[in-house]
């Protein structure tokens, strides 16, 4: 599990602060790719205003219950509301940005 500390409060820029959780399964290729993709997206779009927790469901299976995780990898946007889940390896950046409310949703089918 990796946790990136919050940089500064959202009030400083007026932009919302993000709290994200990424559920993965050990070091499988998709899990690895999901971590890489998310880091890139966060650095480019959420610089300094996000908190990311990476959870290995092998290690902590009980954590899946609260957020209703059915498959991995799954990214959960806890804050800002509304809570949203994005499933897959996060390689479709536009779809991820849409899910995070950072860009208009293009296609519901992905």
């Amino acid at each position: 599990m990796t946790s990136l500390p919050p940089d500064m409060p959202s009030s400083a820029t007026g932009l919302p602060h993000y709290k994200l959780r990424l559920f993965i399964t050990g070091s499988t290729p998709r899990s690895t790719r999901a971590i890489e993709n998310l880091r890139k997206i966060c650095e480019e779009n959420l610089d300094g205003r996000y908190e990311l927790e990476v959870i290995d469901v092998y290690d902590r299976p009980e954590t899946t219950r609260e957020l209703q995780i059915v498959a991995t990898p799954t990214l959960v946007k806890v804050l800002p509301e509304p809570l949203r889940r994005i499933i897959g390896d996060l390689s479709d950046e536009l779809k991820v940005l849409a899910g995070l409310d950072l860009a208009p949703r293009q296609s519901q089918q992905g």
Binding site: I24, T25, T28, V57, P61, A71, I87, G88, D89
Partner: peptide, 11 residues
């Protein structure tokens, strides 16, 4: 995603 095999595991 499950259908396309984009996930590794199912909880």
């Amino acid at each position: 995603a499950i259908r396309r095999g984009e996930v590794d595991a199912v909880v």
